[in-house]
Simulated assay, not measured.
Amino acid sequence: MSTFQQFPFVSVNGRPYERGVQYGRAAVGRVRASAAMYGQTLHALGYSASARAALIGHFETMIGELDASYLEEMRGIADGADVPFADIVMINARTEVLAKARADKAEAEGEALLDGCTGALVLPERSATGNLLHAQNWDWRADCVETGIVLRVQRDDGPDFLTFVEAGGLARSGMNSAGVSITANYLESDRDFKQLGVPLAILRRKVLDQPVFANALKAVATTPKSCSNNIMLGMAEGFAIDFECTTNEAFPLYPGADNLIVHANHWVSPVARAKLVDTGCENSADSYYRDWRVHKLLNQHETISRDDLKQALFDDFGTPFSVCRPPREGVRHSITATVAMVVMEPALGEMDVAPMPALNRRFTRYRLKGDPVLLDAPSV
C-alpha cells in the first residue's frame, strides 16, 4: 500500500482580495497545474482564444451577479499565483465550461463529466460520538491528486470555513463554523444545459458562507443551475438532507429509519424519476450498487464511528468500478480514480482527508482551529 503526499493546507484571512492573494501565493504550483489541466482540455476541444474568453466571460458575469466579492477573491488568487484571472474563473466553473464546450464542439474528444462520488451522512442518533458525520469519496481525474488542497478561510465577514477543493477553486466539500457541511456529486438528466446558471463550485461556496442553516437550504434549492447535481447538506445540531437538483428544481431526500443518507450517481427520488430522464447510467452503472454497499456496510454497526465510515468508503466490491476506485481508464481515455476521501465531524470542526484512498490509507486531520495532524493508517 503506497503512501501519497498529503494535500497541502492553506490558511488565509482578511478581506476577499487579500485572502485570494494569500491563497494564490501559498498554492501557486497547484493553482497553475489546475489552470493548465482545464486549459489544455479546452484547447483539445478546438476552442480559439476568443471563443474561450467569451465562454469564460459569460460565467464571470453570472458569478458577479450572485456575489461580486467572489470575483475579488478570484482576482486575488490570480494575482497571488501570477496566472490570468480568466483561468481562475475557468477553474471555478470547470464543470459548466467543459460541458458547454463539448456541447458546442460535439465532434471533439474530451473526458466525460464523471465527477462521480459516493456520499454519506450519519445522524447523531447513529453516530458513536453523538455528533453528525458527513463523508464522501470524490471520483474524478486521477491527476487531480496533484491539484487538490485543503483551504481554511478565517474572516470577519461571515463564518470561518474549511474545504477540500481543487487549487484555484473557492469551495468544494467542506464545513463552516456555524456547523453547516456540504458535499456534492454528479447527476445527469435530460434538462441539463437547457439554460446556464450559477457554477456549482460557487453554489457550494455560497452554502459555506451561510451562518444560518435555513439559508444554506435556500441557496441549494432556489439557485438556478446549468446542470444536474446531487447536494448533501448536514447541520451539526442534528439534521441532514439530500437535494437531487436539476437546473430549475430540487427534490429532497431525508434520512431513512436507519438515520442514514447514502447517495451515489443515480436519481433516487420517486418524484424526480417520474419527471426526468436519468441520462447518466451509461457512464455510471456502478452507481446502482455503490450506495447499496455503503448502506449495507454501515448498517453492520449499531453505532457508527469515523473509522467505520472510512472502512465503508474503502469498499472495493466490484473493483475497479467500486466505492473506492483505483486509477483506471475512464470512458473517454482519461485516467479516473477516487482522488480523495473526506470525512467530517462538523460539531468538532474536524475534517479527515486521504489522497488516492484505494492506494493509500493515511489521513490528515484538518481543523477549523489549530494545525493539521497526520493520523496513523487505519487497519484494513
Rank of each mutant, 00 (worst) to 15 (best):
G330Q: 08
G80S: 06
I304W: 02
V353F: 06
M175C: 09
S228K: 03
E73C: 03
K275L: 11
S334P: 03
K296N: 14
S48I: 11
S34F: 04
R25G: 02
I261M: 09
E166I: 03
K206Y: 01
T118F: 03
Y288F: 14
L151Q: 13
G24C: 09
A171L: 04
A219W: 00
S127H: 01
M74I: 14
A27Y: 01
L123N: 14
M235C: 13
R365G: 07
I149R: 10
N13V: 15
A274H: 10
A171G: 07
D82G: 08
G20A: 14
T222Y: 08
D209L: 13
A53V: 11
E244K: 07
Q195P: 03
D316K: 12
Y288Q: 11
G179Q: 04
F317T: 09
D307A: 01
D139W: 05
T41Q: 11
T222S: 12
A33G: 13
E109A: 14
I91H: 10
E166Y: 08
P199V: 03
K194P: 05
E244Y: 11
H301G: 01
S322L: 12
I77S: 03
Q22S: 05
K275C: 09
N230S: 15
V277G: 06
M344P: 06
V122H: 00
L368P: 03
S173L: 09
I261Y: 04
V12L: 09
N229L: 00
D315T: 00
A312L: 08
V331M: 07
L298M: 15
G119P: 00
R126G: 07
G64M: 11
D376P: 05
S189E: 04
I88A: 04
D79A: 13
H333K: 14
G119M: 14
N215P: 02
N248P: 00
T147W: 03
A354E: 06
R52Q: 14
T364W: 02
N229V: 09
M1C: 15
R141A: 13
T118Q: 11
R306P: 04
V339P: 01
T338Y: 01
R290Y: 00
D352T: 13
S11M: 04
V268H: 04
G174F: 03
F321L: 15
A337P: 07
K218S: 05
L71H: 01
W267F: 05
R204V: 14
L151T: 15
V271T: 01
W292H: 12
R19L: 12
G116R: 04
V339F: 10
N215D: 12
K296T: 15
V294T: 01
L374G: 10
V97L: 06
V28D: 02
A99D: 09
G57D: 04
P320G: 11
F317L: 10
A312N: 10
K105A: 11
W138H: 08
T147K: 04
S226Q: 00
F85I: 10
T336H: 06
V373G: 03
K194E: 11
A106M: 11
L309M: 12
L114R: 10
E350M: 04
T147G: 06
F7C: 07
T147R: 10
R361E: 09
F363A: 07
M62E: 13
C245G: 02
A44Q: 05
N215Y: 07
M175G: 02
I182M: 07
D156P: 04
V268K: 01
G130N: 14
P224K: 05
A274P: 07
T41H: 01
A178E: 00
V271I: 13
G179E: 01
D139G: 05
